[in-house]
Design a protein around this nucleic acid. Structure first.
Lengths: 257, 257
DNA sequence: CGCCGGTTTGACCCGCGTCAAGTTGGGTGG
DNA sequence: CCACCCAACTTGACGCGGGTCAAACCGGCG
């Protein structure tokens, strides 16, 4: 629990707010005043746990995190992945009971902001409130996309879709400038997100690898044929509702890195 | 497209806002001033379609509606069901591109409010804005719940869970005072929500009927053993984030109507 | 009376789960 | 510098939940 003098967390938050909505200089100044406490978390431990009542929000500075829940028979379902700039529990501002947990897959740095401070900011700066609201709505749009995948797509398609989604969201925050990105997930974690088993995920990835679509060595993910992968996963990035048109990845070279 | 003099839509909206958050008399007065246009829609037709850019929100006055998307091979996945008081496309306020469609299963009355009017209201009445934001977050919480179900529960459990969820949400708006409610859905529609096929849904419902858990004659749904159904569906209503504690249904008699 | 959407049921099949047995490679301690 | 360990990954064999196909059945309605 160390308070930082540098404004890394604030800068990341501002970057996100600008990515999501349109805020002005005064808004930015107000955001920079937010009291933020930065903490680090080791891989594999809960940052927030199901059942807790929370009074602060988390902004992910760096690392890779996810949200999940367990069924009664102990199966785990991962609900969302999060990259730098995401505010995974922003919803807690309005519903402080956590109905799921939030954990890290790699050592992660998280900025904590109290709900009170966020409320205060929202009231003084309606455009910031709007940006934050929009951020939670994009979260919801991603959930909808996952529902469609889990309900109606095959294991192969779901996997392809997830790889596309993560690539694009990382790209939006500068973490996947080309077709290569760091995907610090075990196949078990992928399986728990995709509603599959490790065995199946392993076979799907093998297929994709043998077909030259993607490649994965340790946590380094390489998309070799974006178009093929996107078609297979029925990936249409409009559900991510980026303000910068859609063309980020669509304009990438058709094949190869 | 008929403009009503009666304030039915406003009253329903106010009831919802009060259910979801804490607003005061001035807020209520401002809400009552909202220009609302009421229209009726026949069963089976789209109220809003995927791909549209919209500039108004819908509040469901009465009827039963749902949101859905199709996969490329034409399979349909229903994403959400909606009952009186829901504002199914409130998210469009911030993301006016519709990434899914919105349709009715019964003849439904819908109130339309322009985004401009809602924006204006949100800026003048921050507590109303907060209530609306919260409403979209509950929407998101339901999505998460569906993800867990689709990813990790059996067909039987998912079905049980859905029946519980609809019962409870209808109950919250007074449409299921006891264990009986009108569920105007075909088995095909249920299947598209549950990620199953009609055949399977039929068999699941048969099992539930034979075990005396639920009963369904035409569109009349009767839950005979709430506890059994809730246990089977791993239904914990906290994800619905009602303000009125949790005890609405928990206090109902243990068995039978 | 006959059509038609919705429901029900049977027979069969397949994607994915389950179980189980390796294999691989980075990390650790002797 | 090697021996060992353990988590993650792989692969094969087999079974089942739910999908697919197809044929009734049922009740409301023109």
């Amino acid at each position: 629990m160390e308070n930082r003098l540098d404004k890394t967390a604030h800068k990341i938050l501002l970057k996100r707010l600008n990515l999501v909505a349109d805020i002005d200089a005064e808004d930015e100044a107000a955001v920079l005043e937010l009291p933020v406490t930065v903490r680090e978390f080791d891989a594999g431990i809960d940052i927030v746990s199901e059942g807790q009542y929370v009074s602060q929000c988390c902004i992910l500075i760096d690392g890779f995190t996810y949200r999940y829940r367990h069924t009664l028979e102990g199966k785990r379902q991962i609900i969302a992945f999060h990259v730098s700039g995401d505010i995974p529990d922003l919803h807690s501002l309005h519903m402080n009971y956590m109905d799921h947990s939030f954990a890290a897959t790699t050592r992660s740095r998280i900025g904590f902001v109290s709900h009170d401070a966020v409320w205060d900011l929202c009231i003084r700066r309606p455009k910031v409130a709007a940006a934050l609201w929009r951020e939670t709505l994009i979260d919801g749009a991603i959930f909808r996309e996952w529902i469609v995948g889990l309900g109606r797509l095959s294991g192969h398609s779901r996997t392809a879709h997830l790889l596309c989604e993560i690539a694009m969201r990382m790209r939006a925050v500068g973490l996947a400038p080309d077709y290569v990105y760091r995907l610090p997930l075990t196949q078990h974690e992928l399986a728990d997100a995709l509603g599959l088993t490790v065995v199946t995920v392993n076979r799907v990835l093998k297929d994709l690898r043998l077909n030259g679509v993607v490649d994965r060595e340790r946590s380094r993910m390489t998309i070799r044929e974006w178009k093929t992968l996107a078609r297979l996963g029925e990936f249409d990035p409009r559900y991510l509702h980026f303000r910068v048109p859609i063309t980020m990845m669509a304009e990438m070279p058709p094949e190869g890195a």
